[in-house]
Design a protein around this nucleic acid. Sequence first.
DNA 1: CACAGTTCAATAAGCGCTTACCGACACCGA
DNA 2: TCGGTGTCGGTAAGCGCTTATTGAACTGTG
Lengths: 360, 360
Amino acid sequence: MDTPDVRPLRTTTIYDVARHAGVSIASVSRVLNGRNSPRPETRERVLAAVEELGFVPDGAARALSNRLKEVVGVVFRRPVDVPVDEFSEEEESLLFTDVINRGIEAGARTRGFDLLLSTVDVFDPGPLDRIASVAGKSDGLILHDQVLSPTGIARVAQRAPVVTLAGTPTDSSVNVRCDNVTGMRELATHLLVDHGYSSVAYLAGHGDSPDNVARRATFDTVVAAAGVQPWTDDAWCGNYMAAGGAKVIRNVIAEGRPLPRAIACANDQTAVGVMYALAQHGIRVPDDVAVTGFDDIPVARHLHPQLTTVRQPIQKLGAAAFDVLYALISGERRTEPEVVLPTSLVIRGSCGCQLEPMPR
Amino acid sequence: MDTPDVRPLRTTTIYDVARHAGVSIASVSRVLNGRNSPRPETRERVLAAVEELGFVPDGAARALSNRLKEVVGVVFRRPVDVPVDEFSEEEESLLFTDVINRGIEAGARTRGFDLLLSTVDVFDPGPLDRIASVAGKSDGLILHDQVLSPTGIARVAQRAPVVTLAGTPTDSSVNVRCDNVTGMRELATHLLVDHGYSSVAYLAGHGDSPDNVARRATFDTVVAAAGVQPWTDDAWCGNYMAAGGAKVIRNVIAEGRPLPRAIACANDQTAVGVMYALAQHGIRVPDDVAVTGFDDIPVARHLHPQLTTVRQPIQKLGAAAFDVLYALISGERRTEPEVVLPTSLVIRGSCGCQLEPMPR
DNA sequence: CACAGTTCAATAAGCGCTTACCGACACCGA
DNA sequence: TCGGTGTCGGTAAGCGCTTATTGAACTGTG
């Protein structure tokens, strides 16, 4: 990784301001930072010079001196950059990740921090270098799901505190996630008890995602408790993306295998793909097959029928992650290894419930 | 804006590595940057020490020395943080802005840059301070629509080159936008000539947005040329958001005024709101009223009926903005004041065209 | 009028890197 | 053996800030 040969032109520095105002650089700095507020007259002179020269202090120099960059690094996984079927790469995982990032940003703003965003490819062989680079440029790191191994986390945590999202806490990182169990239990119970569906499938996300594991386990538990035949089949495995969900449905139909009465998807994106594929084959939702999601991303409400799902406070997830990270950056030592946010069932039409056609 | 009293604990520096490896800091730096590649043996020693200590270089110090941060600042407007009607704040302007940011990120990656993201509130009295702070932390700035006045732009451009998106070029900034005219002309012609609709309305976005002005002007021209009654009414003004579009429709209906045969919305988000409100009142699209958008954001294809719209290469818009900015950062002097990307009509069902129910 | 006490602002050190500069050393041919 | 030539790697300066230290100027007091 060689530094490209781009050197911006010289900008005005605090020395220029000091000379212009006829004071020392210390005074300029003091005025700018409101410390030991100098005499009003000096202050005015400095301010005038700043305005006249259009001076903006250099963040790197400040950071070096303050030992604080006021930057939080955020890393997430960029889906393969190739459109799959009719679901463009633009839309995949876009919503969920970006909503979380908004939440992080909201939290960061209250502390004067900005977000340094970076992505890693799914196939990236050495995400460590990229992430280390981000770590070097920030005061702390928030890592979305599936971006770095525990070993890698331990490595970058040497430089800056690390918070993971929907992952697993480690010795060197705190995790922030939602309560998968409660939400999924409510949802599964609704499907099995309230609706009494006798054949149900869980359409999985990434197998190694802790969220997926927890959701599946909870789903299976409720299904078993209801005395219903568990619909276990390796084919029912997606990838958290719409294309993945659509593909599963198409394969099942193509192979002439039966569909369950209800499909609980690992997340909303998957449900989007499932409903799309079902509609293509003339299968009605929820009359023929009920479909549910998880997350409650904005589009959930614009599908037809509207999607029954489990709501996570997505933005809050991001804000909470920042708060934890900020505590760590501030030198907080005693933190819980994990922060868990609540979830709740949101009943709309896709599960088979009869609702007003357009609920207010 | 006082620096909060958070000082992270001391991390390992290049001095630690040098001591550990028994070499000078210069050698460490040389190994790390691949310059004047030192003797293999020295190299190994350094690399071993780096690995052992888990050293990650400080970005601020590098930036200060290199005069290059490898960071591009991106600022956009955050919608008011209050849910309006059934459209949550999460979804407003989310898609479009974030897709552009993805594009910027994609471009930035190829040069080893990361994105520094920041938002300004609609009601923010002094966005200049925030933006100046971002400018100080980056090598160049990309400003989305409506974040800073030309005066403000001139100010921050003192520190770092500025590229605006969907704005207007200034003496101190380059603008990147899409070709509103071509796309809108095709769309309006389709509505007026192909479909022969005799009453049409343009549902505007922010009045002061250059995109909105261009789209409206083009639309009006085509309408006039077709000899159709222009549907001019102050009421037909939204705000680029779903809630804005829904509100306009509800007002028109509440006041008992007639609806036009076709509504061309300033963007897709507005169309989402319009279609939602129309459905609430049992008005069928496209049978009773045709609706079109602009942008072709991902959800456009998941509405019912699917949305006829004008496609902009949204991601490319971001990538192009970065490329221009990078040229400026590299000291490029002679740049065009504006970069314009092509648009094209995308016909789906909402304009009234009969298509396959689920186009492949 | 000399002195301590107070206020204000300048000097200089230091944050953690990069790199120009230069000295040490090895190797070679004369 | 000696100086020329190259290679390696160490020393130190400098990037643009913050701030501890220090000293100057001024105040009020004995």
